[in-house]
């Protein structure tokens, strides 16, 4: 399993931020787009075509899956499809986060960003 995870690292920024957006619960496509934009303070915007291309590839890689649950079926459009992290997707996200944290430690050690 570890080898399978390592093969996927480092993740592309789009995939990483999409996994991050799904880390706190299932979202539909537009929700993922909005979450990525908010979490990156507008520095990353995923457009519709790229979003669904990435969703397709991430589903093929078993990082995410389509879920049947609706947060509130009364309020939600039933045609919307929701996506959530798979167990494997969460492991990949954790491994990538650890890799970034390790790099961050080096950045801090070398005071690239000045004294924090």
């Amino acid at each position: 399993m570890d080898e399978e995870i390592q093969k996927l690292l480092p993740l592309t920024p789009t995939v990483f931020h999409m996994l991050l957006a799904l880390a706190d619960g299932e979202k539909h496509g537009y929700g993922i787009m909005r979450a990525v934009e908010e979490e990156t303070q507008g520095q990353m915007q995923i457009r519709i075509g790229s979003l669904y291309g990435s969703i397709g590839r991430m589903m093929e890689a078993r990082l995410i899956e389509e879920t049947n649950e609706r947060p509130d079926p009364e309020l939600d459009d039933e045609r919307r499809r929701y996506y959530g992290l798979t167990a494997f997707g969460r492991q990949v996200l954790t491994a990538e986060a650890a890799r970034i944290a390790q790099a961050m430690a080096v950045i801090q050690g070398k005071q690239i960003l000045g004294k924090v």
Binding site: G29, Y30, I48, G49, L51, Y52, G56, R79
Partner: peptide, 21 residues
Amino acid sequence: LYPKRFRTAYGQQMRQRFRDA
């Protein structure tokens, strides 16, 4: 412009997202 398989899987959702946007 997208391949048929991709359109069948995501076309409807993409239209909906575009409408939202």
